[in-house]
């Protein structure tokens, strides 16, 4: 069955270099620097990436950063908490728009 997402496509990510090799090179250098140990540890960065992967609902990123989180020393408990953080922000982001609804309601109703 054809699908838009295919796990076998993830290893082909580097093929994005074709057509714009300089941009791919710059992206890779920046990407590598972003995930290097800094003020945040590599484990913390992998967990943030895992949470963001869920927020943007990218199946490739979820696979990649589950594995990366494990390889940076995280466990299921830490990864699940990270996913809850993403979910809480997504849920909270919807809910906080309720204030706009209330403002509009106030304006339109007696």
């Amino acid at each position: 069955m054809e699908t838009y997402y295919n796990p076998k496509d993830l290893p082909k990510f580097a093929e994005m270099a074709e057509g714009a090799p300089e941009l791919w090179k710059k992206f890779n250098e920046w990407y590598g620097a972003v995930f290097a140990e800094g003020a945040l540890s590599e484990r913390e960065k992998a967990l943030i990436a895992l949470a963001v992967s869920h927020a943007v609902q990218c199946p490739y990123c979820i696979d990649a950063y589950t594995e990366a989180s494990l390889e940076k020393g995280a466990d299921l408990e830490q990864m699940t908490e990270a996913v809850h953080v993403a979910s809480a922000i997504r849920g909270g982001a919807s809910l906080v728009h309720g204030v706009q609804m209330k403002n509009k309601n106030e304006k339109l109703t007696m």
């Binding site: 140990e37 540890s41 590599e42 484990r43 594995e67 494990l70 390889e71 940076k72 020393g73």
Partner: peptide, 13 residues
């Protein structure tokens, strides 16, 4: 590793 993945950085862990 408790599974099919590679170990983290020794110093960091």
């Amino acid at each position: 590793p408790v599974g099919a993945f590679l170990p983290p950085s020794q110093t960091s862990l």
